[in-house]
Computed example of a mutant assay.
Amino acid sequence: MAPESKIDKSVILVVAGVIEKQGKYLLTQRHDHASQGGLWEFPGGKVEAGESETQALERELHEELAIETMTGEFLADSVFDYGDKVVHLKGYLTHWVSGELVLHSHQDVAWVERDEINDFTLCPADYPIVEVLLSLPLE
């Protein structure tokens, strides 16, 4: 009996910043033509070889949004198979340090109250992070 054949998809490590500013959280909307187009997400990106997750997150947020941030505590992670790739997403509470938002990689942004996040259609991998965020006590 021959072993089952399966497609070996590499896992892409991605970090996301749950950016809080004045009691609201930043969501970004992916370009319509991109993978997961039109969906909302916590911004971030791929961890490159030789980078720590913190370095990658702060670099990606600067490249994508032109802001300086400081990575805080780890919130949650998820592994999601999008069919063409598997994403291991790690979400971190992230603190805004400076800068004015410039959209380099997204078509829209929204600052939302914590209880409004689920009003947006998010990328599937982001939902476990939302669940943990919503379970945290309000400060």
Rank of each mutant, 00 (worst) to 15 (best):
S5Y: 11
I7L: 13
I7K: 03
S10G: 10
S10D: 14
S10Q: 13
I12W: 14
I12A: 11
L13R: 13
V15S: 03
V15Y: 10
A16T: 12
K21H: 13
Q22R: 15
Y25V: 00
Q29E: 15
R30V: 03
D32L: 07
S35V: 14
Q36M: 08
L39D: 10
W40M: 04
E41D: 07
E41M: 12
F42I: 08
F42E: 01
P43L: 07
K46F: 03
K46V: 05
V47R: 04
E48F: 06
A49K: 07
G50T: 06
E51S: 00
S52H: 02
Q55L: 05
Q55H: 10
A56K: 03
E58M: 09
R59S: 03
R59W: 03
L61A: 04
H62R: 06
E63A: 05
A66D: 14
T69F: 02
M70C: 01
M70H: 12
E73D: 05
E73Q: 05
F74I: 01
A76Q: 15
D77V: 01
V79K: 11
F80Q: 09
Y82E: 08
K85Q: 15
K85V: 09
V86C: 02
H88A: 07
G91Q: 08
Y92H: 15
Y92P: 00
Y92M: 07
L93E: 06
T94E: 13
H95W: 13
V97F: 06
V97K: 14
G99P: 07
V102Q: 14
V102C: 01
V102H: 05
L103V: 08
L103S: 06
L103T: 09
S105F: 09
H106N: 14
H106L: 05
Q107N: 08
V109C: 11
V109P: 00
A110H: 03
A110N: 03
A110C: 13
A110K: 08
W111R: 11
R114S: 09
R114P: 02
D115A: 13
D115P: 10
I117E: 02
D119R: 05
L122S: 02
